[in-house]
């Protein structure tokens, strides 16, 4: 399935990552002008958000006259699986975000590897997380294509190996909310057929249609550059062979500079493909310019 186009995209991603890394480290200038942390970090599908869920804000700290690029490398170490994500997102004028992510799930216990590509776009409809009374609201789409592991997805009952998620996300910062600190609240409603985010295909023998699921997170800025919080992401349960539960985590993100942030989390992803209680650590490094 490695078409020339996909190989080219992969090279582009690697090239852009390297370029972004070099530029970010060589350039002490501001990446954008929005307050640090208000663009979130890169979530596992490549969009600006927390770790698991896309937020209503766009990548980086670009404002109406600026462009921001962020690249991220993330790893999750679960009991029976290992997830690796590489992502890149571009924020144009704080209006449109375009993103691309590659996920690679190593099946440590079952054996084998699953790979998925995610092409994302997010349009900020209105608002601002700091200044608008309702916060910032965005409409997003994620086109997901399973690469390696299509046979496995089919074998466990998935109907398709590609799918589209649509979501509406809102983010609002509440100043002086808890112990004098600012609280960032995020709510996402998603329409999806994805099994385990798409890594086990789309639709299934139990339910082939779309499900509307809710995702939410709360992050408390202990300092303007250090946030701690919790996340919750509901998921469909389409496959008869194994139950699927919501994902959740507790996280902390440190915005070391405008160009560099580090996120750590403790994940609880429930059962995955019949292997119960998948928990473990998560680390993500993001470069922005």
């Amino acid at each position: 399935m490695a078409s020339p186009l996909r190989r080219w995209l992969r090279r582009l991603l690697v090239g852009a990552t390297a370029l972004a890394a070099v530029t970010a480290l060589a350039m002490p200038a501001q990446a954008g002008s929005r307050l640090l942390g208000t663009g979130g970090v890169t979530q596992i599908e490549g969009a600006a958000g927390g770790g698991l869920s896309p937020w209503g804000v766009l990548a980086g700290t670009a404002s109406d006259t600026e462009v921001a690029v962020s690249v991220a490398a993330s790893e999750a170490w679960l009991d029976d699986y290992g997830l690796r994500v590489r992502g890149i997102g571009v924020n144009w004028h704080d209006r449109v975000e375009v993103s691309y992510a590659r996920q690679r799930l190593a099946l440590d216990t079952l054996g084998g590897v699953l790979e998925q590509e995610i092409y994302g776009a997010k349009l900020r409809l209105f608002g601002d997380p700091l200044y608008h009374p309702w916060g910032s609201w965005s409409l997003g789409v994620q086109h997901k294509r399973l690469g390696r592991g299509q046979a496995l997805a089919r074998a466990v009952g998935a109907e398709a190996t590609q799918g589209n998620d649509l979501y509406l996300a809102g983010s609002k910062l509440f100043f002086d909310a808890v112990a004098g600190r600012n609280l960032l609240a995020n709510l996402t409603l998603r329409s999806t057929r994805a099994n385990q985010g798409g890594l086990l295909g789309f639709g299934g023998d139990r339910d082939s249609g779309r499900s509307l699921v809710a995702e939410g997170s709360l992050g408390l800025f202990l300092t303007p550059a250090w946030v701690v919080g919790v996340e919750y992401r509901q998921k469909p349960d389409n496959l008869g062979f194994a139950e699927e539960q919501a994902w959740q985590d507790v996280f902390t993100a440190l915005f070391l500079t405008r160009h560099l942030s580090l996120t750590g989390a403790w994940l609880d992803l429930g059962d995955i493909a019949g292997l119960e209680n998948q928990r473990g650590g998560y680390l993500s490094l993001q470069l922005a310019l």
Binding site: S33, L35, S63, T65, D128
Partner: peptide, 18 residues
């Protein structure tokens, strides 16, 4: 004034207050 200018000013003010 663009949003970018407003944001820069807020960032400067936050730095002052810190």
């Amino acid at each position: 004034i663009h949003e970018a200018d407003f944001n820069r000013l807020v960032d400067a003010l936050q730095a002052t207050l810190l």
